[in-house]
Amino acid sequence: MVRSHAGFATRPWNIRRPVARGVSRLAARLWPFWESAKVTLDPWRDEQLPVRILRLLDQLVSDRIILQPVERAILAIAPFVREAVMSVGAKLLAEQDVETLNEVADAKPIRQALEAVHRGRPNLVRRAQWLAENGRRNDARSVAWWLAHRMLLRRTLLWVPRHKSGGELADDLLAALAPDPGNDYLQQALDPPRLLRVAKCIAAADRLLLPGSENLKQLRDNEAVRGTHPELIRETLLARLLHLAGWLALDPRHLDELVAEQIGAIPLTPSLLIETLSKLQWLSGPHERLRLQARARTLRLSSPFACTLMPLT
């Protein structure tokens, strides 16, 4: 995913060659984290999601917003940073047996957070248990992981390094985020704490970017990066662009509860949903409005899926 699209990440962004190489190398270092999470058997993994976010960023920015080259570099790598963090979180949770829907004694904090989600959606817990009892193991897994992502997507501890109290961000991922040594410009621009601050805002809950929110307080604006010409980084602007592009990219993990309820009742699977999402695109309409359209004319959306897209759009 990251490795195959690392080149794409820098092409449309007018990033200077040395910086583009640094972004591509960083993307390649993030690839193993996404790849290693295959062992979780999470059916909601979407390989094309970072690419959709990048295309939307290119569409949103266009000629409307003048970005510094360093800001473009941060936008280019942020979707891959997020997927690496979410992959680490999925592996942590998989160790606690996501498909076990009963409460576990002496559960670790991340398992306790998952069980809180289970208690809040007893209808889906019953649904997954019924599917498993009737030999529908794949459908049961899909519902169980949908519930798991409700927790993972809002778990802030995934973004906190382990050396800090309660943090769950893997040390090896933090080391992989470190920019190439010997290049002061890259070390300032692609500073790991900055990348984490900004990437965390992709498709984040709206309340996380409200005035006075903790997320917004952590963002730093107008920090200068020293190079041939000093460049200012506007983290708040980058965070808001990533927030919007993340939602418009239609992350399958954010799909409504209606989708999870329909799994096993109609021919609906995460792989079918992910394939459908890959065939949708946002087109510019009059008055700077965006409208969602299928790239393939033969694409048909089932009624539940169409209803699910409405609140996202």
Rank of each mutant, 00 (worst) to 15 (best):
G7S: 11
G7V: 01
R11F: 01
P12M: 03
W13A: 08
N14E: 15
R17T: 07
R21K: 10
S24K: 15
A28E: 13
L30R: 04
P32I: 00
D42R: 05
P43Q: 06
R45Y: 00
P50A: 01
I53H: 14
L56T: 08
Q59V: 02
P69T: 07
V70G: 11
I74V: 10
L75T: 14
A78P: 12
V81M: 01
G89A: 08
L93R: 13
D97C: 14
D97R: 13
L101A: 11
A105C: 13
R111A: 00
A116N: 09
N134M: 08
G135L: 10
R137P: 03
W146T: 00
T156F: 12
L157S: 15
R162G: 07
G166C: 03
G167Y: 04
L173G: 08
A176F: 12
A176P: 13
P181C: 00
Q188Y: 01
L195F: 01
R197P: 06
K200H: 09
K200A: 08
I202G: 10
I202K: 13
A203R: 11
A204C: 14
L209I: 01
L209C: 02
L216F: 01
R220Q: 09
A224D: 06
H243L: 01
L244R: 09
W247K: 12
L248V: 01
H254T: 11
L255H: 09
L255N: 09
G264V: 00
L268Y: 00
T269K: 15
T269H: 15
L280V: 01
L280E: 02
L280T: 05
E288V: 11
L290A: 10
A294C: 00
T298Q: 15
T298R: 14
R300A: 07
L301G: 00
F305K: 06
P311W: 10
L312T: 04
